[in-house]
């Protein structure tokens, strides 16, 4: 075999491997969407039907009109949106303040605070479930979206601060100093100079918190008993019946739940990686 032919063969093999990885990653997601658009007789069959033929909107419209556990899927999408957006907005304010403190000031306990952030990120949320459940119960927040919002702020904050501080640190300090010299106050400098420059990073961080909160399952499962207040992840399991599972309905609902996350993901994927392995990559 000539070297050129071998090189070409190698390229073909690499591309084939790439396609294989792509298929492995995408097939389950594709199958979820395909099942959502199949009529029931194409779902409950032992033969393999690669495409919905013809596509049917039965399941999608059914999860909206009939819904599950007595409510339209709109209700759960709305609950999830309320919880995620509120937690993100509150968390973003707290995270921005804390990140500014850590990235802009040298003070005692700064290192201790950073190490604290790293450690609390690693505490399993599942372990905090029991004490937080009793706390929520005692405060009368059981069965309330507010309780979920507060807890999600706590769960996402350490990572948000950790990620955001690199964005704040990336803004040149000279800009703020110029603003001081021009006579601007502390607040004006923060609001007019630092904030606009950190905004893209704040958006990326917020999207990450949104995804975490949107996907959160354990707390939503334990802190909410009222079916009208379920979030999407919890509502999903009610498609699973005692004897049979409504696969068309559950796949339609899963697809609806996945779409916003997928869009956000493609927007921030690069930043997310750099945030998660911060430091290690740049060495």
């Amino acid at each position: 075999m000539s070297p050129l032919a071998r090189k070409r063969l190698g390229r073909v093999a690499l591309n084939a491997a790439g396609v294989a990885v792509f298929l492995f990653a995408v097939f389950p997601v594709y199958w979820m969407v395909a099942t959502a658009f199949k009529p029931n007789d194409q779902i409950f069959t032992t033969s393999f039907i690669p495409f919905p033929d013809p596509p049917s909107m039965d399941h999608v419209s059914r999860v909206f009109t009939q819904g599950v556990a007595g409510n339209s899927i709109w209700r759960y999408l709305l609950n999830s949106t309320i919880v995620a957006l509120s937690a993100v907005v509150i968390g973003a304010v707290f995270a921005l303040l804390a990140a500014t403190a850590v990235a802009r000031f040298r003070f005692r306990f700064r290192t201790s605070f950073l190490i604290l952030l790293l450690i609390v990120q690693m505490v399993p949320a599942e372990a905090l479930l029991i004490p937080l459940f009793t706390m929520v119960k005692r405060l009368g927040l059981y069965d309330q979206l507010l309780g979920l919002i507060v807890i999600n702020v706590g769960l996402t904050l350490p990572f948000s601060v950790w990620m955001l501080r690199t964005f704040v640190a990336a803004v040149p300090k000279e800009l703020e100093e110029a603003s001081w010299i021009d006579g601007a106050g502390r607040f004006t400098t923060f609001w007019r100079v630092l904030f606009p420059l950190v905004a893209p990073g704040l958006v990326a961080t917020s999207i990450f918190s949104f995804i975490t909160t949107w996907n959160e399952f354990v707390f939503a499962l334990t802190l909410i008993g009222d079916q009208g207040k379920y979030t999407m992840p919890v509502a999903l399991q009610f498609f699973v019946g005692q004897r049979s599972t409504d696969w068309g309905g559950i796949m339609a609902a899963s697809t609806l739940m996945t779409i916003p996350v997928l869009i956000f993901f493609l927007l921030v994927q690069r930043r997310m990686v750099s945030g998660l392995v911060a430091g290690a990559v740049k060495g």
Binding site: V21, F22, L23, A25, V26, P28, V29, W31, M32, T35, I211, W214, N215, F217, M232, P233, L236, Q237, F239, V240, W247, I250, M251, S254, M257, T258, V261, L262, F264, F265, L266, Q269
Partner: peptide
């Protein structure tokens, strides 16, 4: 392609693999 797998919420992952 691999982003699609990564982005799927854990609850959706579970039901899809169960299916």
């Amino acid at each position: 392609g691999i982003m699609a797998a990564w982005a799927t919420p854990p609850t959706a992952q579970a039901v899809v693999w169960k299916w």
